[in-house]
Design a protein around this nucleic acid. Structure first.
Length: 517
RNA sequence: GGCCCCGUCGUCUAGCCUGGUCUAGGACAUCAGAUUUUCAUUCUGGUAACCCGGGUUCAAAUCCCGGCGGGGUCACCA
């Protein structure tokens, strides 16, 4: 792949204005998030404006709830838009559904100038023709039948109320345009049929509304997905017919499934909302999607949104699609989790613990655990702290720490076994823990990790000698203790857990384990 | 099928424009080791790629041509 030639990224004159134009027909796609990010950053670095436009012309499929989700998602990412209708002092999104009159004006203009025409072909008729073309191995395009209708026939059909759509006459010529990412692109429009730009005067369709809105919103740069590359030529033709200036285009490569097809919900989780729910941090998502198809040309990989505004450049965006690699996302997310302060991380984890029913309600600083017991903010922070390094995503906090919030633990007794210990050995080991740890004076502040190590470690040595275990292998005591306290084979240090659990609960759990044997 | 785009480790990529410094660099994943009571973190090391074939050249991942492969798009969706 060759480097794109350098471009003056600013439009000829005036302000840089970019937009993201999702359609609210489902959850916001992760690819939309990336396109939004690129548009946002590009606008920021050029002192321009970033705009959100909801493309809800398809009334049947568009839903307000999805619009709400798009808004929430964008805010979550931190890619706020700079303009829009006033909604209680804040910027709302522009919505195409509210602009029918504007589109109608332009549709009429094209109709009057003979650049568009009414088409009375039925969908069945069209479908049949398409099938025929396909079987003959020709490109399935509209034959332009209705463009040949006389104005009398059209008037007659219209008067009869015959169902029609409005088609744009596609000029049979080559359309060439420059793309900031793809370079020079050329399409032969002779290969395309006349496109439907509106179902009727009141209902304009995608290709048309995009062109009109980008003009009316004075969009200077259109940064969007690669899948729109071939749409661009048609839209340029509509622009020309309407006498609009041509914006600057930049088509980003697709985000791919592992099999290299366009990332789709059938093969992947594509909704940004679902990543939010799983507990990915906005910093991580931003960083990760920015890197999907772009890199700074250095070996640096960690970027905040603010830093991206400084470093990002469209020239360094790849032309090839990029596979969405969840492992890399997890890695970056883990990094940002580790970067969080304990206070902040605890706050972020709280909703997950509550949703899982581990924590019930708040009582000022005290949180009520599902068992009815109260837990202090400090203790909660200790729990989170113990698991900070193990967290890849926030939702994992539940399975990692649930045992802190339960009364009784359930686990297989086999789990208590370290190497080839017999039940008696395990019992002896646990009895040792019970015996030694119970000596610690809780009231005197002795119940802490340091003290536990101090008194138990020498005893482990003796225990190992007595049992003929390798002297330095603390596992013969620590492993059964870990399982007794957590019920899990992977956990934080048993002492760390014991300290958080407190003396009473710790000893109780050790006894519970002994009873299992 | 037509048209368009793309092709460096498994994945994201640096290098390509301006050929030699590339025995191809980094990151994730993976493997091994260190630390450790487990997992994780951290650190060290390893395995692993220029799609193929021609051509140009003293020299090609880099330039040219041809194949092959992958993807996108061809709606009264966006």
């Amino acid at each position: 792949m060759f480097k794109k030639e350098k471009n003056n990224l600013n439009s000829e004159s005036g302000e840089v204005r970019t937009r993201v134009a999702p359609s609210p027909t489902g959850p916001m796609h992760i690819a939309t998030a990336r396109v939004a990010l690129y548009n946002y950053i590009f606008a920021k670095q050029n002192n321009g404006k970033f705009i959100l436009r909801i493309e809800d012309t398809d009334l049947e499929r568009s839903k307000q709830e999805w619009t709400d989700e798009i808004i929430a998602d964008l805010k979550w990412l931190g890619t706020n838009w700079d303009e829009g209708p006033d909604i209680g002092g804040k910027f709302g999104p522009y919505k195409q559904s509210q602009k029918a009159d504007v589109y109608e004006k332009y549709i009429k203009k094209l109709l009057n100038e003979g650049k568009a025409y009414h088409c009375f072909c039925s969908e069945e008729e069209l479908e049949a023709k398409r099938q025929d073309q396909m079987t003959r191995g020709v490109a399935p395009i509209y034959d332009g039948k209705c463009s040949k209708l006389s104005s009398e026939e059209v008037a007659k059909n219209l008067a009869e109320g015959k169902k029609s759509v409005i088609r744009f006459k596609v000029e049979k010529k080559k359309v060439k345009f420059h793309d900031l990412i793809c370079g020079e692109v050329e399409f032969d429009m002779g290969l395309l049929g006349d496109i439907v730009i509106a179902k009727n005067l009141q209902t304009a369709l995608f290709h048309f509304t995009v062109v009109v809105d980008d003009y009316e919103m004075k969009i200077s740069h259109i940064i969007r997905g690669d899948d729109h590359l071939s749409n661009t030529a048609r839209q340029i033709l509509i622009q020309e017919a309407l006498g609009f200036p041509r914006p600057i285009y930049a088509h980003c490569p697709m985000i791919l499934n592992p099999d290299r097809s366009k990332m789709s919900k059938r093969k992947n989780d594509v909704a940004l909302a679902s990543y939010i729910k799983k507990g990915y941090l906005p910093e991580a998502i931003i960083n990760f999607i920015a890197l999907l198809g772009w890199n700074p040309g250095t070996e640096r990989e960690i970027f905040s949104l603010y830093e991206l505004e400084k470093e990002f450049s469209l020239e360094k965006v790849q032309k090839a699609g990029a596979v969405f690699n969840i492992q890399k996302l997890d890695n970056i997310n883990g990094y940002y989790i580790r970067e969080k302060s304990i206070e902040k991380l605890t706050e972020l984890c709280l909703p997950y613990l509550i949703e899982a029913g581990l924590l019930e309600k708040f009582n000022g600083d005290q949180k009520i655990v599902s068992t009815g017991e109260e837990i202090t903010k400090l203790k909660l922070e200790k729990i989170i702290s113990a698991y900070k390094e193990r967290l890849k995503k926030l939702s994992e906090i539940v399975e990692l720490t649930d045992f802190f919030f339960k009364d009784k633990l359930t686990y297989e007794k086999e789990l208590l076994q370290w190497q080839k210990m017999s039940d008696t050995d395990i019992k002896d080991s646990l009895l040792l823990c019970d015996n030694i740890l119970s000596k610690l004076d809780d009231g005197a502040g002795e119940w802490n990790i340091k003290k536990m190590e101090e008194i138990l470690f020498p005893e482990i040595l003796k225990f190992n000698i007595k049992k003929n275990y390798p002297e330095n292998n603390k596992g013969f005591v620590m492993w059964p203790l870990r399982v007794a306290l957590s019920g899990k084979k992977a956990s934080a240090s048993p002492f760390e857990i014991a300290e958080i659990l407190g003396k009473e609960k710790t000893l109780q759990r050790i006894k519970d384990a002994i009873n299992l044997l």
